[in-house]
Structures are given as structure tokens and as C-alpha cells.
Design a protein around this nucleic acid. Sequence first.
DNA 1: GCCGTTTTCGGCCCGACTGTTTTCAGTCG
Length: 569
Amino acid sequence: MKNLEIAWIISKIADLAELKGENPYKVMAYRNAAENIKKLDVDITELYKKNELLSIPGVGQNIAAKIEEIIETGKSKYYEELKKEAPRDYEKILRIPGLGSSRLRMILQQLPIKDINDLKKAAKAKKIRKLPGLGPKTEQAILTNVKIQENKKNLKPLIFALPVAEEIVNLLNKLDFVEKGVIVGSIRRKKEMIKNINLLIQTTSPERVAKIIKKMPGVEDVSSEGDVITVDMVMGIRAFIHLTRNDFYTKLQHFTGSKAHNIKLKQIAQQRGFELSETGLFKEHTKIVVEAEEDVYTKLGLQYIPPELREDRGEIEAALEHDLPELITLQDIKGDLHIHTNWSDGLNNIEEIAEQARKMGYNYIAITDHSKSLKIANGLTEDELIKQRNYIKKLNKNFKGIEILAGIEVDIRKDGSLDYSDDILKKMDVVIASVHSGFNQDEYTLTKRLIKAMENKHVNIIAHPTGRLLGKREPYKININDVFKKAIENNIVLEINASPDRLDLKDVHCREAKKMGIKMVINTDAHEKSNLYDMEFGVQNARRGWIEKKDIINTKSLKDLKQILSRKL
DNA sequence: GCCGTTTTCGGCCCGACTGTTTTCAGTCG
């Protein structure tokens, strides 16, 4: 068992304990411990061997004992017992808005409900509205949202699937009978939601690989058919491990997908007198030597297509014309313009953030804490903001190598007004505006609200424009085209939020915005210094949206950036 | 359940909104 699986079990214990009605602070303690385990940069089994589990923040005697049990037996009795008491798909049920653990617990005490289907039946039979504190609206919410949850088909965010895939592939790559192992499929294409993990492993001994996989940590069930081993992981995701002895690069191309991309590519191959399959590229039944994945494309007369573009969204046509975009890379990024510190709800102070950014080779950053109406995030009052701005000015004098811009993430209130006056906003280097409340307003109201904020001449950037949280919260209803038009009209920069929970704007929106000539910025929205590394996810998402260096303002020099930020009508 | 201490117990993020009530509990961010 590794950090990831242990953290996952501890966090599931938190969810189930909450459902059971345990002390909320106990629940919080489990959640906190799980977060800290996930963040460890050492192997937790090593800590256990050295008897140092208690050195993990948030882990005391009790949780340490559970970790020990999981390491020793692969299981936690407490977790297994809690699971038995809960409905099978409690996670899906709890994603229904308005139905939290407290109400669900009450429902479970009154009605015999074993899964989400039973809940749907109860709602249909109008049994929910009869329960104390619940009424027809909650019943209706259950009915409409059960459908949404049922349609989700177990897709997991990339950030959930990727570390699991990396863990398996790293383990296999250490074996001397594995020549090379790589992640393929939708994870390689950096799709935001993932159904299955796909790995391609070239090995001299498929049998020995199969044996190792059976004994791998975090595995629940293994079956194998032909060259594919199917692995069901404890964390509820399935991995397909494709084993091969040869033809690595045509297989790499094949298993990376997408299906639609491959179908079209094969058609092109045929038209040009080739035959392309996973076992090789052939011309007149003669196998052509393929020594890299690039060869598959170049031998067919195409430009090499990066995995992020392989969705049959016009990339093959563009590659035929040698007209693919020159996709942005992580190295193009010169700074991060959306960062929180411990002045509001961030973990680190400004100096720690700046130091980290300097280490990453950035030329500039913007500190953009929350504004006063976001009480839960300890939003800054006007006085505090001015104080912070002055502090940053002083800091810049003795902080060499990087420029710290004084910014703010100002809240867009329900009527579209901002919660600071123009007098305050005009003093800031960067003004980010964003929505943090009233998500269920209708499309007309929400769009009007965003547009009103974009009309403020001090606003530079709209952050996480659609407000979605992957796998957790739907985007709020806005007319994205109207927002795009306003962005052009008022010279507003739209954010591509790099937080792996958000990726907002999403890939197809990035592409539309680019076509319209809208300027964008890739920001992490970091709440602690390690989040600055999330930039990678933002860049990948942007690449899926055909974004180039020139489309993104934080690839510019400090001088050019300042010019853009000081724009105003 | 964890943590810190003025240490073995008290505090742990908190306010607005919603749907249900008719004064409030639960949910959400």
C-alpha cells in the first residue's frame, strides 16, 4: 500500500463517519490526515518502518493505528464496517445538491434504501416529502439529480486517475524484464475526465509481469485475456495493461487513441496506399520500420500530432496541410497571476510564495487574495488590502530576481457589482474578478452579472469563468458566447484556471476564445506554494484547446505584461 | 480525532441561503 491508497481509505472513512453522524471534528480530523498523507513526499511505509507515523501532521495514535493496519493487511476493519452500514453508491447520492450526510442519514433511518435506485423509487412514490424537514422541492431535486448522477458513468477527474497510473507504471518500470512502460489512452491525451487507465508495457516476460501485478499494492481484482491484464484498483478505477514484446511505437500510437482519431488516420493511410494497425505500418504488405511514434505520422506525410490534439477535431486535416498550431509549453510560462497567501485563505506568506516562484524560474507573480465578502476565506478589508499592497511594494525592493505584483481577486456580487470601490481597485496592479456565490441563478441573470463586472474599467481578468468543479459541481449557467463577446469588446483577459479540480475555461472553450482573438492567462489559483506546480495541468488543458504561446499573456515579458494590464478603454 | 498547552481538556473557519417551517436545521462555499 502506498500513500495514495492509504490517503484514499482514510478520506473514505471521513465520508462514511460523517454519514454515520460522528463528531464533525472527528470527521475533519480524518480528512485533514488524508490530505497530509497525500502531500507527503516520502513513502509512508518507510515512515511506518521507522516508527514515525506520528510525525505526519494530523496523525495521532488512532489514525496511526489504522495506517498500520492498512499497511500490514491491506484493509481497515473500521472502514469495512462503515461501508456495510452505508448505501452502496453513497458517493453518488451525496453529490445530489441539497442532500448532505445529515439528511441522508435521516432518510436511511426512516426508509429501507440500499442504493441510489431505491432512493429514486422512494422519491417517485412521494415518500421523501413525508419525512420531517423535507418537502416536495427536495424530492424533485432528488429525482432530477439522480438522473445526472446515473449518466456520469464513473468518469474520474484526470488528477484522480493520473497518480494511480503513474504509481503502477513506475513500479513496472523498475523491473529488469520490463523494457519500457508508458501511460497511454485518455490520460496521455490529458483528457479532463478519465474512464479507465491504459498502460503499454514492453516486456520480455509477460507472465512475470502478470504475476507482479497480482501482488501490487492497491489491487482488488485481476483478470487477464490475451495480451491485456485488467486490474480493478481499490480506489475504484480500472486499469488495462497492454503487454507487448514488439511493435512498441505503432502500439503506442494505437492505444493512445482517441478511437475517432485512429479511424480517420487509418483512412488517410489507406488513401495513400498504406495499411496502419497496432502491429505496424505496411506498404504493399511490406512492414515499414517505425522507430518512434513520430514516424507513424511522418511516413504518412503528416505533421506529428501531439497526443492532446488527437480527438478528431480537425487535427488530422491540419497535419496534412502542415498547419498544426505551435502548442504552448510549460517553459513558455513566465509567471502566475492568481495566487492566495495567508493574508486570506492561503497557507504560505508572500515571501514563501515568491521564493518558490523564483525557484521555478518565473519573472513575476501576482498576489491576489480574496476580497471582503468572502468571509469564509478570510477576505481582506479595504484597509488590509492597502496594507498588503504597501507591504508588497517594500518587499519588491529587497526581493531580487522576481517582481511581485499587488493584485486582488474581487468578488462579483449577485447583482454584478464588485465588493470594492473603483478608488481601491485602481490602485492595484492586477484586478481579477470572479463569482463565488449564487451559483444557481438563471442563465440570463448570471450572464448579465458577469458582463456587468466586465464593464468595470479596472477589471483585468475574469477567473474560472464557468465555476465548475470537475466531478463535483456543474458549471454555472452562463451564455459563454455573450461573455466572449464582452471580453473582446472590453479587452478583458479570460483565465484558464490550472487547478486540476477546475480546468476552467475547458479545452473547447479555449479554442473558441482563441478563434475570436480573446487574450487568456493560465493561472494556478494556488492556495499554498506546492500548488504553483499545477501550472502544468493548465498548460495541458490549454494545449487540448489548440492554444499557442502568443494567446497567453503570462508568457509575455514583465514589460509587455504591464502594458496589457494597464490597458484601459 | 488531533493539537497545544496558561497540558490531560477545550477548541477546531463561519455566514448566507434555502426549504422547511412559523423559528430553524441543514447545506454550501
